[in-house]
Design a protein around this nucleic acid. Sequence first.
DNA 1: TTGTAAGCGTTATCAA
DNA 2: TTGATAACGCTTACAA
Lengths: 324, 324
Amino acid sequence: MVGIREIAKNAGVSISTVSYALNGSSKVTEETRDRILAIAKELHYTPNIAGRTLKKQKTNIIGMYVTDFGGEFYSHMIDGVASVLKQHHYELIVGTGGGRSRSFISQRFVDGAIILDANFTDDLIHNYADDGSKLVVMDREMKNKNVRHVLLDNAEGARQAIAALNDANVDHFVLVTGPTDSFDSRIRLQAAIKQVEQMTGKTILVIPSDFTIAGGHRAAKSIIEMSLHNIGIFALNDEMAIGLYEEFTANQVIVGQYVKIIGFDNDMLGQYLRPQLTTVDYSKHHWGEVAAETLISLLEGDKVDNQFIHTKVIHRGSLGESQN
Amino acid sequence: MVGIREIAKNAGVSISTVSYALNGSSKVTEETRDRILAIAKELHYTPNIAGRTLKKQKTNIIGMYVTDFGGEFYSHMIDGVASVLKQHHYELIVGTGGGRSRSFISQRFVDGAIILDANFTDDLIHNYADDGSKLVVMDREMKNKNVRHVLLDNAEGARQAIAALNDANVDHFVLVTGPTDSFDSRIRLQAAIKQVEQMTGKTILVIPSDFTIAGGHRAAKSIIEMSLHNIGIFALNDEMAIGLYEEFTANQVIVGQYVKIIGFDNDMLGQYLRPQLTTVDYSKHHWGEVAAETLISLLEGDKVDNQFIHTKVIHRGSLGESQN
DNA sequence: TTGTAAGCGTTATCAA
DNA sequence: TTGATAACGCTTACAA
C-alpha cells in the first residue's frame, strides 16, 4: 500500500502538498503538481478510501437494497438508479437486506440508501432515519423527515386493468391476489375492487394467492371448478398469470376466448405465452431514475416530495384483442 | 454520530475499555462490559466502519463485479457466493465494473473481489493483483499469484452437446457461435469442432453470431436458405437458440423434426419453448459457491488451485427425444 | 507556494 | 482490570 507519505518522500515535499496536488488544488504550482502526479502514477498510488472517509465523513456511495438479485425485474431499475447517480458522482453498491450489509447504513458506509427489500421492517427503517440516514423506499409508504417513498401508482394500474377487462365485455371479474403482507398486492386489490364496483356493479371473486407461478396453477384450478362463463381475470402480477395460462392450457381452456386475463408488471415471459399476455406496464428504468433523483435531493438538503410512477396497459391478445 | 468517546464519557471509563467491551475481550469485568453495552445500545451506537478499517486494514467485505444486473443468470450465482461468504463472516457487495466502483479494489474498500465482468480488461486485473489484491475471475483464464480462475468446463459441455446431437442421428452439424471476443464462445466452439471431427467426421458449418436472440434469427435465416436435411444445431448459448426457434417457427420449420437444436446455459426461457429446449446445464449456485470458497482460501493464505465446474445435458425435446 | 500539525473513530500496545 | 496514547491515511486550517 503506497500512501501520500511515500509519494511525499519521493517528491521531496510534505504530505499536504501531495494532498493538494492530488486533489487539484490551485495552491500548488503546476510544476510540482505534475511531478507529484507522475510519481503517484509510477508508484500505482490509489487513495485509501477509509482514510478519506474518516476525514470527510462522506463516502459518496449509495446503497441499494433488493430482496434478491433474481430476475430482470431489478435489472432495468438498477440501471436507472446507476445512471442518475453517476451524473452526480455517486457510486452505487447493491446488496440485500437479508445479509448484514444492511448495517452499512448505520455505519455510514453509504451516504444514503434506496430500499426495495422486504427484509427491512418499517421499524428498522425508521430507526435508521431517526439516526440521521437519508433513505428512499420503493415498496412501502413511509412518513419520516429523512425518508421519501417513490412508489408505483398501483391504484392507477389496477383501475386501468379493470377498465381493460370491462372493455373486453367480461361478465365476471376474478382477482388473483398476492400475499397479504405485500404492499403492492393490497393496494392493487383494493383499487381493483373499488373500480369494479364503481364501473360495473358486476360480481367480483377474489382468489387469495401468492404472486408465484404455482399460485397461478392453484387459482386456475379453482376457477375451472366453478365453470363460470365469460370471465375476466386480473392477476395482480404476471407470474401468476403465467401459472394461470399453463393450467388453463393443460385443461383445454383457451385464453383470450373463454377466459380473459390481464397481468401486472410486464414480465418478459409474458411475451412467450400464446396469446401474448396483456399486462399493466411501467418503466422500471424511470422508476429507478426517480428514486435516485429523490435521494440526491434529500442528501443535498433540497426540498423534495414523495413520488409516484405512472402505469399503462399493454394490449397483446390475452383479452381477445385483435393483434396486428 | 455517537462514537466510543461518548460512550466512554457516559460510562465513566476510557475509550479503550469501551473498545474492549464492545469487542468482547476478556480483559474487562462482566459488570463493566454489561454497563457499557447497555449504554451503547441506549445511545444507538454503531461502530464506524471507516475508523475500524483504517486501523485494521481489512473490511471483511468482498466485491462481486458483473457485467450487468440483468437476468436470472447472476441471481443464483450471487446467492451461492453470498451463502459461502456469510459462513465465513464476509459481507458481499455487488457492482459493475463499468462504473467507478471497480476502484474499490485498489482502494482496499473490499478485501477481495470476484469478477465476472467484461468491463475489466486482463491488464487491469493483473495490475490490481500485482498491487496485492486477491481476486477470483469467472470469465477468463488468468495466471497470477493473486488470482485464481473458477471456470465453467465449457469444453466438456460442448463435447456433451455434440455427443447428444450425434445420438440424435443428425447428418450435418451447425454451430452458431457467440462474439469472437467471448472466452466462453471460443472454448465451446473449439471443443465442439474437435469433437465432431473425432466422433463422426461429418460436415461442420460454423455460423458466426453474437449470443443474442436477434443473432439467432439471422442464423436461422441462413440455415433455411441452405435447405439442408436432417441438421443438428448447437447454439452456443440459449438466447440464440430462442432466436432460432422463433425464426424456424415463423417459417414452418418444425424443431425436433426437420431441425434439431441444443443450447447452452439452461436459460429459463427455454422451458417456455415448444418443444422445450434441450440444453447444456450447470449449477450456477454451485459455481458461485466454489468461486467464494476459492477467494477465501486465497485471502487466508491457503494453497488453492484453479477450479472447474461440470456440465450436463438436460433432454427436453428439441432433439426429437420422446418426453415423459 | 509549501510545511506543520490537528483531527476523523477505531484498535492495540504498553503502563499503571 | 483499566487507562493513556500512538497509529492507521487522509484533509485542511493555519503558520511560515
